[in-house]
């Protein structure tokens, strides 16, 4: 079977070529998409940042390797968080941080006297009547994200007891870490 074509004149041929280019591009792209390795969709990032999803190991791994993704999550967290505690001042980077503070709250870190390997993280809200945050997220400079679900505030204070080697605590003590309270 044969299809007979009368090739159009040069002017029409240019239009035909444009149509061909579009079809070809689409076909090539759709074919390539079948083989492509999907990454992390922004909607997935939003679900995690907004707390709709609390565990997403693939996302956390991707954040450590994809600086653009990490920038996106930081910008998103900064926008939707109850309070954002930026990286601490460089002048005091010699020792571990024990206090972070914003207009809305202060985060204090106190070692336990009873158990030296344990540490209290105390979030003191400046307005005790304010809606308290429910989640603490740390974002380290290398893209590592840690998440801690917070207990309910009592009298404007949220207190968590952590082991001294807990990843969240290590991040909190790091001057280069940004902290988001949701």
């Amino acid at each position: 079977m044969t299809i007979q074509i009368n090739l159009p004149d040069d002017q029409s041929m240019a239009t035909v070529q444009e149509h061909f280019a579009d079809e070809d591009n689409v076909r090539q792209t759709l074919t390539a998409m079948r083989e492509a390795e999907p990454t992390i969709a922004f909607s997935r990032l939003w679900r995690f940042a907004s707390g709709e999803v609390t565990h997403d190991a693939d996302l956390l791994t991707a954040l450590r390797h994809d600086s653009k993704l990490a920038a996106d999550v930081n910008a998103l967290l900064q926008k939707i968080s109850w309070s954002h505690l930026p990286q601490a001042a460089a002048a005091s980077t010699d020792e571990d941080l024990r206090l972070r503070e914003t207009d809305l709250c202060a985060i204090r870190i106190e070692s336990s006297r009873a158990e030296p390997d344990q540490v209290y993280v105390i979030i003191e809200l400046k307005d005790a009547e304010a809606n308290a945050p429910r989640t603490l997220i740390t974002s380290a400079a290398g893209g590592t994200l840690e998440r801690l679900e917070l207990p309910a505030a009592q009298g404007g204070v949220i207190q968590v007891l952590l082991q001294h080697d807990d990843a969240v605590l290590i991040a909190l003590r790091d001057h280069g870490t940004e902290v988001f309270l949701r």
Binding site: R108, E110, S111, S112, R113, A114, E115, Q118, Y120, I122, E124, P151, Q154, V157, Q159, V160, L161, L162, Q163
Partner: peptide
């Protein structure tokens, strides 16, 4: 029973961080 530099009193199980 230990006095702690904490903001809130807490009950912990077996000296762990389980509050």
């Amino acid at each position: 029973i230990t006095r702690e530099p904490a903001a809130q009193s807490a009950i912990c199980v077996k000296r762990t961080t389980r509050v």
